[in-house]
């Protein structure tokens, strides 16, 4: 379980002014819940995710994960970034094996686990490719496999499909839900796409920008497992999308800092 308790984050900007990126954010995410954080760019939603990941320190407040306050990164929380952040000097297999290797898992065990994950993300046969030889969608599959390899309880996904074309994006959304259905990890998913948030999530957290605050939290009552084609025709799904889009439009556009 993730408990975000009155977290704020201030950045010192170049002009020696302070920018309040996040203001007094409180949010609880239950075990096995899929929660999306939706907001315009610059609203601090990624910063919030980095704070939960332990990559960025909050200015005030606390994040508690399974009764332990977050003080740094840990293998219980696995990040997936929009930029993939793959190691360019390692092959696909090398990327997935890296964490297991470094933590001292026996070679053959790490190899078996990595191959199993590459099969799960539909990339078996690409073990010896370098990331630069893959398409964006394939790179993100590798990154997801690399993160799942060390079995985090929580996935922190930072606009993971934001850099992909529409077709690849929907394919990866479907595959992600398929993988998630198997063991229902807790997922915190940052996005600026309303459809993506509604399609994937149990709850959608809407944020406003400057300073980043939680505007509203909407529970998505749609049956699982979800299937995209059926959902697109589902009246309730459509209503959610229209309602959330309307609420998003209500907030003024802000300059990107």
């Amino acid at each position: 379980m993730i408990s975000i308790d009155r977290v704020s984050k201030q950045f010192e900007t170049s002009r020696a002014r302070r920018h309040l990126a996040l203001s007094d954010i409180s949010l609880s995410v239950a075990r096995g819940e899929f929660v999306s954080i939706l907001g315009p760019s610059g609203c601090g939603k990624s910063t919030l995710l980095y704070i939960v990941g332990g990559f960025v320190e909050q200015s005030s407040g606390a994040v508690i994960v399974d009764d332990n306050p977050v003080t740094g990164p840990g293998p219980d929380r696995g990040p997936v970034f929009q930029e993939f952040a793959l190691f360019p000097w390692k092959t696909v297999l090398g990327n997935v094996m890296y964490g297991l290797d470094q933590r001292g898992m026996p070679k053959d065990e790490a190899l078996a686990r990595s191959r199993e994950l590459l099969t799960m993300v539909k990339l078996s046969g690409y073990e010896n490719f370098y990331p630069k030889e893959l398409s964006g969608g394939m790179k993100q599959r590798v990154a997801i496999a690399r993160t799942l390899a060390y079995r985090p309880n929580i996935l922190l996904m930072d606009e993971p499909f934001g850099a992909l074309d529409a077709h690849t994006r929907t394919k990866l959304q479907n595959d992600l839900l398929g993988i998630w259905e198997k063991d229902r990890k807790t997922v915190l998913f940052v996005t600026h796409s309303v459809e993506e948030a509604v399609f994937l999530s149990d709850r959608v957290v809407m944020m406003t920008s400057s300073p980043g605050r939680i505007k509203d939290i909407i529970k998505i009552n749609l049956p699982r497992p979800r299937e995209r084609a059926a959902l697109l025709l589902n009246r309730r799904y459509q209503d959610y999308v229209v309602e959330i889009e309307k609420m998003m439009d209500e907030q003024p556009e802000t300059r990107v800092s």
Binding site: G53, G74, G99, R103, T147, Y150
Partner: peptide, 12 residues
């Protein structure tokens, strides 16, 4: 930095 974060999150 996200390269280093990816390693740190893996427990390195």
């Amino acid at each position: 930095p996200k390269l280093a974060w990816s390693a740190r999150a893996a427990g390195v």
